[in-house]
Amino acid sequence: MQSTLGVGFLGAGPVTQAIHLPAMARLTDHFTVRHVNDVDAAVAQGVAGNAGTAYSTSLEALLDDPRVDVVAICSPHAYHAEQAIAACRAGKKAVLCEKPLAMSAAEAALIATVSAETGVPVLVGAMHTFDPGWRAAVASWGDLPATSHTIRSSVVLPPNARFEDLATEVISRAAFPAVDVSDVEVRASMVHAGVMGLAVHDLPLIRSLLPRYDDLRVLCADLLTPFGYRILMVAGGKVIELHAVMSQTWQPSWVLEAYADDQVLHTEFTPSYVHAGSAVSTLTTAGSARVFGPSRANGYEAEWLELAAVVRGEVAPPDLDGLVDDLQFTVAVADAAADAVRTLAKTEAAA
């Protein structure tokens, strides 16, 4: 039997604690947690203690640990590119980088270049792209990418903390400071962050349904309170609606839909931080409804299992150009949506 792959986590916040460590606990035939790193020594020590492994507060300490085969980047978005490149140059066997891969197309392209030069595969932890319920629908949707005309992503969630607390006892979660949403630049920044942090889950899926996006136009965008966004855009001849809101009371819902004249795709994903099996996808035509899922494994497990298969040479590494294109699309949507928020504010002020 092959030995397990040693995993080191860069960043020990809620994503590591409530998402990846529970996944690791279900995949002990493939992985062993070897190192936990965080700039906050108390958090790093506490999480490592719960996981029964080593901890550190410096990037170099984790990369120098010979027991770490795979680096999982779960740090704030701004550090993803730097850390992914460093992990590749350290000669690790693979990198799993939480979404987004980077904060600009240039950063993503540099990661792809270094990955190719070093031979270290990089996977992006966009769990919906790995979800068995989604992938089964993709394999059966026929000409939907060519024939669909409307795509809609709708997300309604309570604040992440509620799901984090259900998944595990998260160590040292600081509350977000209050912001002045009457400031247009604050609203634009929050919508931009919403795209990069939340819509990013579904944007690679949406891109796979588009023939092109160089003609992307955001028609309108605005911030939904207490946090969320409403974005209407067109790209590749299709109408795309993005809606997300966080609420203390509404029932969670995460749905992605694509409509053609003769077929509809309806996919219901489990909310982030919830380990409850795969998505359920339904492809409906005038004469049939085919249902895919739920599978026992969720997207988090599926992405880790694919990484293990890549390292062991059982499947090909992900297409680096595709990952860069996903990031470029996400940044283009985020930038255009933020600009649309500013335009709306100017229009309202002039009215």
Rank of each mutant, 00 (worst) to 15 (best):
A41I: 06
F269L: 09
R187W: 05
S148N: 14
S104V: 03
E60V: 04
V122H: 15
H80M: 11
T129P: 00
A279G: 06
I231H: 04
F292L: 11
P177Y: 13
Q17P: 01
H266C: 14
V280E: 10
V156C: 10
V47C: 08
N160W: 12
H275D: 13
H30M: 09
P317M: 14
S189K: 13
F329Y: 13
R67S: 11
H30R: 15
T249V: 14
G322D: 12
T284L: 02
G236R: 01
C220F: 06
P318R: 11
G228R: 01
D335G: 01
H80E: 14
V15A: 04
H243V: 08
G142W: 06
A316K: 12
Y229T: 00
Y79T: 13
I151D: 05
E348V: 12
G194S: 09
P76R: 13
L62C: 03
S56P: 01
A136M: 08
A316S: 15
H128C: 06
L209M: 15
A137T: 04
A338G: 12
L203F: 07
E268G: 04
Y259W: 15
E241D: 12
A351Q: 09
L144K: 02
P177S: 10
D29Q: 14
A146I: 02
R89V: 00
T53M: 05
L101P: 02
E169S: 08
F31A: 01
A334M: 09
R26H: 10
S172L: 12
R152P: 00
T285L: 14
D326S: 07
E98H: 14
Q45W: 06
L327C: 12
V68H: 05
V331D: 04
V122E: 07
T113I: 03
G13N: 08
L63C: 00
L210K: 03
S295I: 00
A161K: 11
V179T: 06
V255G: 02
S278P: 04
L265P: 00
P76K: 11
S288G: 10
V245P: 02
R162C: 06
C74D: 09
V218W: 02
R152C: 06
A78F: 12
D339V: 10
E60F: 03
T53W: 08
Q83E: 11
L27R: 02
L216W: 03
R162M: 09
R26W: 03
M103S: 08
V124W: 08
H77Y: 13
H80P: 02
D29E: 15
R296I: 10
F163P: 00
V234S: 10
R296H: 10
A336Y: 05
D326L: 05
A350N: 06
V120E: 05
S153C: 12
P159M: 10
M196K: 08
A309E: 12
I171F: 11
Q17H: 07
Y229E: 07
C74G: 02
G293S: 01
S247F: 09
A350S: 14
H128R: 09
M233A: 15
